[in-house]
C-alpha cells in the first residue's frame, strides 16, 4: 500500500494533474463475482470486449485470451452479452474472505 499524501501535498481544488492516473487504481477489489472465460467455447465475436465498461477483456491477435482481474469489477456485462449459444463466460462467486 502506498503512503497517503497530506493536505499540503495534494494539488488545490481537487485537481488531478497526472493524466491517466486511474490506471493506478486497481478496482478488482470491488468484485463479488468473477467472470471466467472458456477459450474452447469462445467464438471470438468480441462482444464482451465491446461492452466491458472497464476495458478488462484481454485481446491478443483478435483472440480473447483472458480477463484482467486487476480492474474487472465483476459487473457481469461480459457474461450477459456473450451469445446464449456460446456461453463462454460464466460468473463464479469469489471465495469469501476469512
Amino acid at each position: 500500500m502506498k503512503e497517503l499524501q497530506g493536505w499540503k501535498d495534494i494539488p488545490i481544488g481537487t485537481a488531478i494533474i497526472e493524466a491517466g492516473s486511474s490506471i493506478k487504481y486497481l478496482t478488482g477489489g470491488w468484485r463479488d463475482n468473477r467472470p471466467e472465460h472458456n477459450k474452447d467455447k469462445c467464438t471470438n465475436c468480441l462482444l464482451c470486449w465491446v461492452y466491458c465498461p472497464e476495458g478488462a477483456i484481454i485481446v491478443k491477435d483478435d483472440q480473447v485470451t483472458g480477463i484482467n482481474y486487476d480492474y474487472c469489477k465483476g459487473c457481469g456485462i461480459c457474461s450477459a452479452e456473450c451469445p446464449p449459444k456460446v456461453k463462454a463466460i460464466t460468473m463464479v462467486k469469489e471465495p469469501k474472505l476469512m
Binding site: 481544488g13 481537487t14 485537481a15 488531478i16 493524466a19
Partner: peptide
C-alpha cells in the same frame, strides 16, 4: 490535461 471534482473516498 487535468481532472477536477473527481471522486474522493474516505481516504482523501
Amino acid at each position: 490535461p487535468v481532472t477536477l471534482g473527481a471522486c474522493a473516498l474516505p481516504d482523501y
